Computed example of a mutant assay.
Amino acid sequence: MEMLVPILAAAVRSGTPILYATLGEILTERSGILNLGLEGLMLVGAFTGFSVASGTGNAWLGIAAAFLAGCLLALVHAFLCITGRANQVVSGLALTMFGTGLSSLLGRGFIGETIPGIGGMTIPLLSKIPVLGPTFFDQDPLVYLSYGLAVFLTWFLWSTRAGLALRAVGDAPRVVDAMGLSSTRLRYLYAVIGGGIVAMGGAYMSVVYTKMWGDLMTAGRGWIAVALVIFAVWHPLRAVGGAYLFGGVGALQLRIQAAGTSIPAPLLLMLPYVFTIFVLFVISVRKGKGILLGAPASLGQPYHREERD
Protein backbone atom coordinates (compact mmCIF):
# COMPACT_ATOMS: atom_id res chain seq x y z
CA MET A 1 0.00 0.00 0.00
CA GLU A 2 2.88 2.37 0.75
CA MET A 3 3.94 2.13 -2.90
CA LEU A 4 0.64 3.74 -3.89
CA VAL A 5 1.17 6.82 -1.71
CA PRO A 6 3.30 8.78 -4.26
CA ILE A 7 0.71 8.05 -6.98
CA LEU A 8 -2.19 9.08 -4.74
CA ALA A 9 -0.41 12.27 -3.67
CA ALA A 10 0.34 13.06 -7.31
CA ALA A 11 -3.34 12.45 -8.16
CA VAL A 12 -4.36 15.07 -5.59
CA ARG A 13 -1.92 17.64 -6.98
CA SER A 14 -2.82 16.86 -10.59
CA GLY A 15 -6.54 17.00 -9.83
CA THR A 16 -6.44 20.30 -7.92
CA PRO A 17 -6.59 22.63 -10.97
CA ILE A 18 -9.50 20.57 -12.31
CA LEU A 19 -11.19 20.78 -8.91
CA TYR A 20 -10.96 24.58 -8.80
CA ALA A 21 -12.37 24.83 -12.33
CA THR A 22 -15.19 22.42 -11.48
CA LEU A 23 -16.15 24.20 -8.26
CA GLY A 24 -16.21 27.54 -10.06
CA GLU A 25 -18.41 26.14 -12.81
CA ILE A 26 -20.77 24.50 -10.31
CA LEU A 27 -21.26 27.92 -8.69
CA THR A 28 -21.89 29.49 -12.10
CA GLU A 29 -24.27 26.81 -13.33
CA ARG A 30 -26.21 26.76 -10.06
CA SER A 31 -27.20 30.34 -10.94
CA GLY A 32 -28.52 29.16 -14.31
CA ILE A 33 -25.60 30.42 -16.43
CA LEU A 34 -23.70 27.95 -18.61
CA ASN A 35 -20.06 28.86 -19.19
CA LEU A 36 -18.10 26.73 -21.65
CA GLY A 37 -15.17 29.12 -21.53
CA LEU A 38 -13.34 27.31 -18.72
CA GLU A 39 -10.29 26.51 -20.83
CA GLY A 40 -9.88 30.18 -21.75
CA LEU A 41 -10.43 31.31 -18.17
CA MET A 42 -7.85 28.82 -16.88
CA LEU A 43 -5.25 29.91 -19.44
CA VAL A 44 -5.75 33.59 -18.65
CA GLY A 45 -5.55 32.74 -14.95
CA ALA A 46 -2.35 30.76 -15.53
CA PHE A 47 -0.69 33.59 -17.44
CA THR A 48 -1.86 36.35 -15.10
CA GLY A 49 -0.81 34.42 -12.01
CA PHE A 50 2.61 33.61 -13.41
CA SER A 51 3.34 37.08 -14.81
CA VAL A 52 2.33 38.87 -11.60
CA ALA A 53 4.21 36.38 -9.42
CA SER A 54 7.27 36.76 -11.63
CA GLY A 55 7.11 40.54 -11.66
CA THR A 56 6.43 41.08 -7.96
CA GLY A 57 8.17 38.07 -6.47
CA ASN A 58 4.98 37.31 -4.52
CA ALA A 59 3.16 34.14 -5.59
CA TRP A 60 0.07 34.97 -3.52
CA LEU A 61 -0.33 38.25 -5.39
CA GLY A 62 -0.23 36.18 -8.56
CA ILE A 63 -3.06 33.97 -7.32
CA ALA A 64 -5.12 37.04 -6.33
CA ALA A 65 -4.48 38.69 -9.71
CA ALA A 66 -5.56 35.51 -11.50
CA PHE A 67 -8.81 35.49 -9.53
CA LEU A 68 -9.50 39.11 -10.51
CA ALA A 69 -8.67 38.44 -14.17
CA GLY A 70 -11.08 35.50 -14.17
CA CYS A 71 -13.76 37.69 -12.61
CA LEU A 72 -13.33 40.31 -15.34
CA LEU A 73 -13.58 37.79 -18.17
CA ALA A 74 -16.57 36.13 -16.54
CA LEU A 75 -18.19 39.55 -16.21
CA VAL A 76 -18.01 39.94 -20.00
CA HIS A 77 -19.65 36.53 -20.42
CA ALA A 78 -22.29 37.43 -17.83
CA PHE A 79 -23.08 40.73 -19.56
CA LEU A 80 -23.53 39.03 -22.92
CA CYS A 81 -25.67 36.21 -21.53
CA ILE A 82 -27.70 38.01 -18.85
CA THR A 83 -28.11 41.56 -20.11
CA GLY A 84 -27.61 40.86 -23.81
CA ARG A 85 -29.37 37.47 -23.63
CA ALA A 86 -26.83 36.05 -26.07
CA ASN A 87 -26.50 32.34 -26.73
CA GLN A 88 -24.58 31.03 -23.72
CA VAL A 89 -22.88 28.22 -25.62
CA VAL A 90 -21.57 30.55 -28.32
CA SER A 91 -20.43 33.13 -25.75
CA GLY A 92 -18.58 30.45 -23.76
CA LEU A 93 -16.83 29.08 -26.84
CA ALA A 94 -15.82 32.62 -27.82
CA LEU A 95 -14.39 33.09 -24.31
CA THR A 96 -12.29 29.95 -24.72
CA MET A 97 -10.90 31.12 -28.06
CA PHE A 98 -10.23 34.61 -26.73
CA GLY A 99 -8.50 33.37 -23.59
CA THR A 100 -6.41 30.86 -25.52
CA GLY A 101 -5.24 33.44 -28.04
CA LEU A 102 -4.62 36.17 -25.46
CA SER A 103 -2.56 33.94 -23.17
CA SER A 104 -0.47 32.69 -26.10
CA LEU A 105 0.15 36.22 -27.37
CA LEU A 106 1.06 37.79 -24.04
CA GLY A 107 2.92 34.76 -22.74
CA ARG A 108 5.48 34.50 -25.55
CA GLY A 109 8.12 36.37 -23.57
CA PHE A 110 7.67 34.17 -20.48
CA ILE A 111 8.14 30.75 -22.07
CA GLY A 112 10.83 28.81 -20.22
CA GLU A 113 10.96 31.15 -17.22
CA THR A 114 10.58 29.70 -13.74
CA ILE A 115 9.55 31.16 -10.38
CA PRO A 116 9.91 29.96 -6.76
CA GLY A 117 6.12 29.65 -6.57
CA ILE A 118 4.43 28.31 -3.46
CA GLY A 119 6.09 25.44 -1.65
CA GLY A 120 4.63 22.56 0.30
CA MET A 121 3.21 22.75 3.81
CA THR A 122 3.01 19.63 5.93
CA ILE A 123 0.25 19.54 8.54
CA PRO A 124 1.57 18.11 11.84
CA LEU A 125 -0.05 14.96 13.23
CA LEU A 126 -2.49 14.58 10.31
CA SER A 127 0.39 13.95 7.90
CA LYS A 128 1.45 10.96 10.04
CA ILE A 129 -1.77 9.03 9.36
CA PRO A 130 -0.84 5.97 7.29
CA VAL A 131 -1.53 6.43 3.55
CA LEU A 132 -4.11 9.23 4.04
CA GLY A 133 -1.63 11.52 5.80
CA PRO A 134 1.03 11.72 3.06
CA THR A 135 -1.68 11.76 0.40
CA PHE A 136 -3.85 14.60 1.68
CA PHE A 137 -1.90 16.45 4.37
CA ASP A 138 1.59 16.74 2.89
CA GLN A 139 0.59 19.12 0.12
CA ASP A 140 0.70 22.85 -0.62
CA PRO A 141 -1.59 25.57 0.83
CA LEU A 142 -3.76 25.83 -2.31
CA VAL A 143 -4.58 22.14 -2.10
CA TYR A 144 -5.78 22.67 1.48
CA LEU A 145 -7.72 25.73 0.30
CA SER A 146 -9.48 23.59 -2.29
CA TYR A 147 -10.60 21.17 0.46
CA GLY A 148 -12.05 24.06 2.42
CA LEU A 149 -13.70 25.58 -0.64
CA ALA A 150 -15.50 22.33 -1.50
CA VAL A 151 -16.77 21.96 2.07
CA PHE A 152 -17.76 25.64 2.27
CA LEU A 153 -19.72 25.53 -1.00
CA THR A 154 -21.54 22.41 0.12
CA TRP A 155 -22.51 24.08 3.40
CA PHE A 156 -23.38 27.32 1.61
CA LEU A 157 -25.63 25.69 -0.99
CA TRP A 158 -27.65 23.52 1.36
CA SER A 159 -27.47 25.19 4.78
CA THR A 160 -27.85 28.94 4.18
CA ARG A 161 -30.59 31.23 2.92
CA ALA A 162 -28.19 32.74 0.39
CA GLY A 163 -27.46 29.25 -0.93
CA LEU A 164 -31.17 28.54 -1.19
CA ALA A 165 -31.58 31.74 -3.21
CA LEU A 166 -28.74 30.67 -5.49
CA ARG A 167 -30.29 27.26 -6.15
CA ALA A 168 -33.68 28.91 -6.66
CA VAL A 169 -32.38 31.37 -9.25
CA GLY A 170 -30.96 28.45 -11.22
CA ASP A 171 -34.27 26.60 -11.10
CA ALA A 172 -36.95 29.31 -11.18
CA PRO A 173 -35.65 32.89 -11.58
CA ARG A 174 -39.20 34.25 -11.88
CA VAL A 175 -40.02 32.92 -8.42
CA VAL A 176 -36.90 34.59 -7.01
CA ASP A 177 -37.99 37.92 -8.46
CA ALA A 178 -41.45 37.42 -6.99
CA MET A 179 -39.82 36.99 -3.57
CA GLY A 180 -38.30 40.48 -3.83
CA LEU A 181 -34.79 39.37 -4.80
CA SER A 182 -33.07 40.23 -8.08
CA SER A 183 -32.36 37.23 -10.30
CA THR A 184 -30.18 39.40 -12.50
CA ARG A 185 -27.95 40.53 -9.64
CA LEU A 186 -27.62 37.01 -8.26
CA ARG A 187 -26.70 35.60 -11.66
CA TYR A 188 -24.11 38.31 -12.21
CA LEU A 189 -22.63 37.77 -8.75
CA TYR A 190 -22.19 34.02 -8.95
CA ALA A 191 -21.15 33.95 -12.60
CA VAL A 192 -18.37 36.43 -11.83
CA ILE A 193 -17.17 34.71 -8.64
CA GLY A 194 -17.34 31.33 -10.35
CA GLY A 195 -15.14 32.62 -13.17
CA GLY A 196 -12.58 33.86 -10.66
CA ILE A 197 -12.40 30.44 -9.01
CA VAL A 198 -11.94 28.78 -12.40
CA ALA A 199 -9.02 31.11 -13.14
CA MET A 200 -7.43 30.11 -9.82
CA GLY A 201 -7.26 26.58 -11.20
CA GLY A 202 -5.17 27.88 -14.09
CA ALA A 203 -2.98 29.90 -11.73
CA TYR A 204 -2.36 26.75 -9.68
CA MET A 205 -0.90 25.15 -12.81
CA SER A 206 1.68 27.88 -13.42
CA VAL A 207 2.40 29.21 -9.92
CA VAL A 208 2.31 26.02 -7.82
CA TYR A 209 2.20 22.84 -9.89
CA THR A 210 4.86 23.55 -12.57
CA LYS A 211 6.25 26.94 -11.34
CA MET A 212 6.75 27.92 -14.98
CA TRP A 213 4.81 29.23 -17.95
CA GLY A 214 4.12 27.11 -21.00
CA ASP A 215 1.85 27.85 -23.94
CA LEU A 216 -1.52 26.03 -23.71
CA MET A 217 -0.34 24.52 -20.43
CA THR A 218 -3.84 23.65 -19.17
CA ALA A 219 -3.99 21.01 -21.93
CA GLY A 220 -7.76 20.60 -22.01
CA ARG A 221 -8.37 20.53 -18.26
CA GLY A 222 -11.10 23.14 -18.68
CA TRP A 223 -13.07 20.80 -20.93
CA ILE A 224 -12.57 17.97 -18.46
CA ALA A 225 -14.03 20.22 -15.75
CA VAL A 226 -17.12 20.88 -17.90
CA ALA A 227 -17.76 17.13 -18.06
CA LEU A 228 -16.94 16.70 -14.38
CA VAL A 229 -19.63 19.19 -13.32
CA ILE A 230 -22.27 16.87 -14.79
CA PHE A 231 -20.51 13.76 -13.48
CA ALA A 232 -20.57 15.29 -9.96
CA VAL A 233 -24.28 16.11 -10.35
CA TRP A 234 -23.57 19.76 -9.52
CA HIS A 235 -22.41 18.80 -6.02
CA PRO A 236 -19.10 20.27 -4.71
CA LEU A 237 -18.07 17.26 -2.57
CA ARG A 238 -18.67 14.81 -5.40
CA ALA A 239 -16.51 17.04 -7.56
CA VAL A 240 -13.58 16.39 -5.20
CA GLY A 241 -13.62 12.65 -5.83
CA GLY A 242 -14.12 13.14 -9.57
CA ALA A 243 -11.26 15.63 -9.86
CA TYR A 244 -8.85 13.32 -8.06
CA LEU A 245 -9.99 10.43 -10.23
CA PHE A 246 -9.14 12.41 -13.35
CA GLY A 247 -5.94 13.63 -11.72
CA GLY A 248 -5.00 10.05 -10.93
CA VAL A 249 -5.40 9.03 -14.56
CA GLY A 250 -3.13 11.90 -15.62
CA ALA A 251 -0.56 11.12 -12.93
CA LEU A 252 -0.60 7.44 -13.83
CA GLN A 253 0.21 8.06 -17.48
CA LEU A 254 3.19 10.21 -16.44
CA ARG A 255 4.42 7.43 -14.12
CA ILE A 256 4.08 4.86 -16.88
CA GLN A 257 6.08 7.05 -19.26
CA ALA A 258 8.78 7.62 -16.64
CA ALA A 259 9.06 3.87 -16.09
CA GLY A 260 10.20 3.47 -19.69
CA THR A 261 7.27 1.47 -21.01
CA SER A 262 7.14 0.31 -24.62
CA ILE A 263 3.64 1.79 -25.00
CA PRO A 264 3.80 4.77 -27.40
CA ALA A 265 3.74 8.12 -25.56
CA PRO A 266 0.82 9.54 -27.63
CA LEU A 267 -1.36 6.65 -26.47
CA LEU A 268 -0.52 7.38 -22.84
CA LEU A 269 -1.26 11.08 -23.34
CA MET A 270 -4.70 10.08 -24.59
CA LEU A 271 -5.61 8.40 -21.28
CA PRO A 272 -7.23 11.39 -19.51
CA TYR A 273 -9.32 12.23 -22.55
CA VAL A 274 -10.35 8.64 -23.20
CA PHE A 275 -11.46 8.56 -19.59
CA THR A 276 -13.41 11.80 -20.16
CA ILE A 277 -15.23 10.21 -23.09
CA PHE A 278 -16.02 7.20 -20.91
CA VAL A 279 -17.43 9.49 -18.20
CA LEU A 280 -19.60 11.26 -20.76
CA PHE A 281 -20.86 7.88 -21.94
CA VAL A 282 -21.78 6.95 -18.36
CA ILE A 283 -23.55 10.28 -17.95
CA SER A 284 -25.54 9.68 -21.14
CA VAL A 285 -26.61 6.22 -19.97
CA ARG A 286 -27.65 7.54 -16.55
CA LYS A 287 -29.58 10.39 -18.14
CA GLY A 288 -31.32 7.99 -20.51
CA LYS A 289 -32.49 5.93 -17.54
CA GLY A 290 -33.68 9.04 -15.70
CA ILE A 291 -31.03 8.62 -13.00
CA LEU A 292 -29.26 11.94 -13.57
CA LEU A 293 -30.67 14.48 -11.14
CA GLY A 294 -29.48 17.83 -9.88
CA ALA A 295 -29.21 19.95 -13.02
CA PRO A 296 -30.59 23.49 -12.53
CA ALA A 297 -33.93 23.63 -14.34
CA SER A 298 -33.18 26.99 -16.00
CA LEU A 299 -29.56 26.24 -16.93
CA GLY A 300 -28.61 27.92 -20.18
CA GLN A 301 -31.99 29.60 -20.63
CA PRO A 302 -32.02 33.40 -21.05
CA TYR A 303 -34.37 35.19 -18.68
CA HIS A 304 -35.83 38.68 -18.53
CA ARG A 305 -38.16 39.60 -15.71
CA GLU A 306 -40.42 41.69 -17.97
CA GLU A 307 -41.23 38.73 -20.20
CA ARG A 308 -44.28 36.57 -19.64
CA ASP A 309 -44.33 32.78 -20.04
Rank of each mutant, 00 (worst) to 15 (best):
A10Q: 13
A11F: 12
R13Y: 05
R13D: 12
P17Y: 09
P17L: 03
Y20E: 04
L23I: 14
E25C: 09
E29I: 03
G32N: 07
I33M: 14
G45T: 11
A46C: 08
G49L: 00
S54I: 00
S54Y: 12
T56F: 06
T56S: 14
T56V: 05
N58T: 02
G62N: 11
F67S: 03
A69L: 04
A78D: 06
G84C: 10
N87R: 01
G92Q: 05
T96G: 04
F98H: 11
F98Q: 12
G99D: 03
S103T: 08
R108V: 14
P116T: 05
G117R: 09
G120M: 07
T122H: 01
I123C: 03
P124L: 00
L126T: 01
L132T: 02
G133R: 07
T135D: 05
F137V: 06
A150H: 04
W155F: 15
L157A: 10
A162D: 07
G170V: 05
G170R: 08
P173E: 09
R174Q: 14
D177L: 08
G180R: 11
L181C: 06
T184G: 11
R185A: 10
L186S: 07
L186D: 00
L189H: 01
V192G: 01
V192F: 01
G194D: 04
G194V: 03
G195C: 03
G196H: 02
I197S: 05
A203R: 08
A203L: 08
Y204F: 15
V208S: 04
M212Y: 00
W213M: 09
L216H: 15
R221A: 09
W223H: 15
A225H: 13
A227E: 09
A227F: 11
V233S: 15
P236N: 05
Y244Q: 04
F246W: 11
G248I: 06
G250Q: 15
A251Q: 10
A251P: 12
L252W: 10
Q253Y: 06
L254R: 13
A258F: 11
A258D: 13
A259C: 02
T261V: 11
T261L: 03
I263Y: 07
A265K: 09
L269C: 00
M270T: 12
L271E: 01
Y273I: 09
V274I: 15
S284H: 10
A297V: 13
Q301T: 13
Y303G: 09
Y303C: 10
H304Q: 13
R305L: 11
D309T: 02
